[in-house]
Design a protein around this nucleic acid. Structure first.
Length: 209
DNA sequence: CTATTGATGGTC
DNA sequence: ACCATCAATAGG
């Protein structure tokens, strides 16, 4: 690139390794708004990340790595910027981004995306299982390098702090004190956030109508 | 709207 | 046996 002062990120810039080489909470925060892209012979599928959860380390009882190093969790201990995909309940896939330096085990689960390109028209993309289904993410993507040319993330404008909401992670009640920590982040009011409260009621007709 | 249940397979 | 889910169903 030619700019000698600051570099304005073009929407086609892949997130660099150093983006992922940080604590999971920081990566999670900055993943909001970024673009998740799958390039395959059939074409490109892309979506904007609107909801994530941070799994911050082996000491985090909600993180799969809390079980220690196993065949499944090994990727979490590996270098940052790789995909961690697993099958849950025998039928749904969950897509995570590996964060933190090699030797530490942390990840960010993507829980909601907004369709941008190449998705089946009526597909739902709220919820970790549904978004993997819509994008075509399967176990074949597990351990894939996110700086490769098949599955990667593109830079996009930062979501302002005022638009970021936080709350406890979903479905981790077994994780004792780690269950309530506010490590779920989402874009406030975004329609593709999972488990959103119902839409605000339609405006009432004029009184007396 | 909430609450409950069944599907289904990798992992430990 | 457990599970970072989802769709369908029943009930208020």
């Amino acid at each position: 690139m030619t700019s000698t002062l600051h570099h304005i990120a073009a929407p086609s810039d892949k997130l660099p390794r150093r983006f992922y080489d940080r604590p999971a909470l920081a990566v999670a925060r900055d993943l909001l708004g970024k673009h998740l892209v799958l390039d395959a012979p059939g074409g490109r599928r892309a979506a904007r990340i609107v909801e994530v959860e941070a799994y911050v380390g082996e000491y985090d009882l909600a993180c799969h790595a809390a079980k220690g190093r196993t065949a499944r969790t090994e990727v979490l201990f590996g270098p940052p910027g790789h995909a961690y995909v697993y099958l849950i309940y025998g039928m749904h896939h969950c897509f995570n981004v590996v964060a933190s330096r090699e030797g530490r085990a942390a990840a960010v689960l993507v829980r909601g995306v907004e369709p941008l390109e190449g998705l089946p028209p009526k597909s739902r993309t709220d919820g970790p299982g549904r978004l993997c289904d819509a994008l075509g993410i399967t176990l074949s993507h597990n351990r894939m390098d996110l700086l490769g040319d098949q599955l990667f993330l593109l830079d996009a404008p930062r979501v302002p702090a005022a638009a970021v909401a936080r709350g406890p992670r979903i479905g981790v009640d077994y994780a004792k004190e780690w269950a309530h920590k506010p490590y779920r982040l989402w874009i406030r009011g975004h329609p593709h956030v999972s488990r959103s409260p119902s839409r605000p009621p339609a405006p009432l007709p004029a009184r007396g109508a």
